[in-house]
């Protein structure tokens, strides 16, 4: 079983569109949306949810104002600036609370308690291209990296049960905690790069991160004709890094139209040159 993760560094380069396209050419794959924070893959694959699970992203502190003596010990100990005192009353600024529970432990009046933040869900679904594991994080929630680990673990279990040959992960943008959780333990990273200075700058940082995990890298240049000179610069960079460039896909409004029609580009334009390029990419990365 081979696990493939699609990443980009910069957002909006076409990760999800390419992942969905790969999903429709791959046989016997489990799909997994690792972008738990702004998940979009389901918009194309229209999953039928079979299993719903709740995810706790950690604790949040609350004050019982009737017990609180407003001594301020919690303010002095909170390193996250999550506690304030207005008109003498202690208040927790919930979105700043890290959930370390130190305030709860040191409160001399035991006036602070914690509640788990459970506004996050993850799902196992059926799609026309196989099983899919995906999530919906509550806005502003923490611990997206942990939720990524959770959906990936479930995807692996399903892949084992079904003896699937592949897991295809749609990755998150960036290089922080979610990206690290998406890279760790995968077999292959496919970079989707757009020919912009931002795209190049961001992919360099991503490559540095992926290299530290010693995982093999391949690249696709998307919308390559937006700026051919920058596209050349990226090709040269990939060459110098020994990262094989598997396809250069032109900017085409059909990519967006397929999304509007809830189809992958393969389904929307089966005979197009883009479809052929993506089939070629799959033939190489599936090896």
């Amino acid at each position: 079983m081979k696990e493939i993760t699609v990443l980009s560094g910069k957002g909006g380069t076409g990760k999800t569109t390419i992942t969905a396209a790969l999903a429709s050419v791959a046989q016997n794959a489990v799909l997994c949306d690792n972008d738990v924070d702004a998940a979009d893959l389901h918009l194309i694959l229209q999953p039928q949810v079979m299993e719903t699970n709740q995810f706790s992203s950690g604790w949040k502190a609350f004050v019982s104002t009737e017990i609180c003596s407003n001594c301020g010990a919690c303010i002095d100990n909170c390193r996250f600036g999550a506690i304030s005192q207005t008109d003498g009353l202690i208040q927790i600024i919930t979105y700043k609370c890290e959930g370390c529970r130190l305030c709860e432990r040191i409160c001399p009046s035991s006036a602070i308690y914690s509640k788990e933040s459970i506004n996050n869900y993850w799902y196992v679904s059926n799609t026309r291209h196989g099983k899919m594991v995906h999530a919906r994080m509550g806005p502003g929630e923490e611990n997206s990296g942990k939720l990524v680990t959770k959906v990936r673990r479930r995807a692996r279990e399903i892949a084992k049960e079904q003896q699937a040959s592949f897991i295809i992960n749609d990755g998150p943008p960036g290089i922080g905690c979610s990206a690290i959780s998406a890279i760790s333990g995968t077999d292959l990273v496919l970079l989707v790069i757009e020919p912009t200075q931002s795209g190049l700058h961001d992919v360099k940082r991503l490559v540095e991160l992926v290299r530290s995990f010693n995982i093999s890298l391949y690249a696709v240049l998307n919308k390559y004709d937006i700026n051919v000179l920058v596209a050349f610069e990226i090709e040269a960079y990939l060459h110098s890094e020994n990262i094989p460039l598997l396809a250069s896909i032109p900017f085409d409004k059909a990519m967006v139209e397929s999304m509007v029609n809830e189809k992958t580009i393969i389904e929307y334009l089966p005979a197009s040159a883009i479809t052929q390029s993506i089939r070629k990419v799959w033939e190489i990365i599936k090896q």
Binding site: D40, L43, G140, E141, S144, P173, G174
Partner: peptide, 28 residues
């Protein structure tokens, strides 16, 4: 701000007096 809607985005917008949201007219 960074992309997404998680804690780091909240951290960025928490002190803002006004937020400009930039979107594109696609389903995503």
């Amino acid at each position: 701000a960074p992309p997404g809607t998680s804690c780091q985005v909240v951290e960025t917008v928490s002190d803002a007096d006004y937020v400009i949201l930039v979107t594109e007219p696609t389903p995503f």
